Amino acid sequence: MTETAVFGGGCFWCTESVFLSLRGVISVAPGYSGGHVEQPTYEQVCGKATGHIEVVRLVFDPDIITFETLLQVFFATHDPTTLDRQGGDIGPQYASAIFFQSESQREIAQHMIEQVQTEIGVPVVTRLLPAQTFWPAESYHHNYYARNPGQGYCQVVISPKLAKFRKRYAQLLAS
């Protein structure tokens, strides 16, 4: 029995590479959600007029990794306090968002948002949104970091983020 989670935490190249390394995560797909354009392209989404957010769709085994644990990783690996921005990536497509797939996910996510906000002492701007159509990204975005580790963005942004993540969450990593 599996579940699905959909998160927007900035550039999907980063979020995909983080979640792919977790034990209990069966698959991770980059894509777009939340907008009004059907079958959007990367270029359209980057144009900032589609309403879509870059997201990852995870299929996971809740007997191995819980939705709450996925949320802990989500909040620890992006900045949920910056509106439509993650570092140098600026625009509505980089919004922090959780597209809940069930009432249970909504409740857990709402509690986690409140908890994170209390812990850090500043407002969390993560959007909590109902499930919407997930449009898969173009094939060249899938497993981007693993296929392009020498690319500048991967070296400067993703590699340091992954190193920090792996150190903090070593117990959750797949072998």
Rank of each mutant, 00 (worst) to 15 (best):
V59E: 13
P136Y: 09
S159E: 14
P62M: 05
T4E: 15
T4S: 13
G47M: 02
P123S: 12
G24N: 03
K167Q: 14
R127S: 14
F67Q: 12
G47C: 07
V18A: 04
A146N: 14
A131Y: 12
T15H: 11
P149M: 08
L83T: 11
L20N: 13
M112T: 15
F19C: 08
L20K: 15
K48G: 01
I113G: 09
G51R: 07
H78W: 06
E138T: 10
K161S: 04
V116N: 01
Q110T: 14
L58K: 04
Q115K: 15
A29K: 15
L129V: 14
L173H: 00
Q72I: 13
V45D: 13
A76G: 12
K48C: 09
A109G: 00
V55Q: 01
T15I: 13
G9E: 09
V56Q: 05
H78F: 11
T50V: 05
T50H: 05
R147S: 07
R106W: 09
I65D: 01
Q93P: 07
P80V: 05
V55A: 02
I108K: 00
T77W: 10
I90Y: 06
A163I: 05
D89F: 06
G152Q: 09
A109S: 12
D61T: 06
F12V: 04
Y144A: 02
I65T: 02
K161H: 03
A174Q: 15
V28E: 01
S27H: 08
L71A: 11
T15Q: 14
T69H: 00
T133G: 04
V45H: 14
S21I: 00
R166M: 00
V73F: 03
F67V: 11
Q155E: 13
F12L: 00
Y42W: 03
R57E: 14
V124W: 04
Q101T: 08
N148C: 00
L83R: 12
Q72L: 13
G47Q: 08
C11S: 12
G47Y: 03
P92H: 09
T41C: 07
Q151L: 12
H141C: 05
I53E: 08
M1Q: 12
M1I: 13
G31W: 03
G34Q: 04
T2N: 12
L172R: 05
D79L: 11
K161T: 08
Q101H: 15
D61P: 11
Q39V: 12
L162E: 10
P130S: 11
W13K: 05
H52N: 07
A29S: 14
A49R: 11
G121M: 09
Q132N: 03
F100A: 03
E114S: 12
T41D: 08
Q171V: 09
Y153F: 09
T41M: 06
I90V: 15
V73R: 03
T133N: 08
P80Q: 07
E103G: 11
F12K: 00
A174H: 09
R166D: 02
P136R: 10
F74D: 06
K161F: 01
W135P: 00
G34C: 07
F19V: 04
T133H: 10
E114H: 10
Y169A: 04
G150T: 10
Q115S: 15
T126Y: 06
A163H: 08
A163C: 01
V125M: 13
P130Q: 01
A29F: 06
H142T: 11
R168S: 14
T81N: 08
V73S: 03
C11H: 07
Y32S: 04
C11Q: 12
G121F: 08
Y42T: 03
A137F: 01
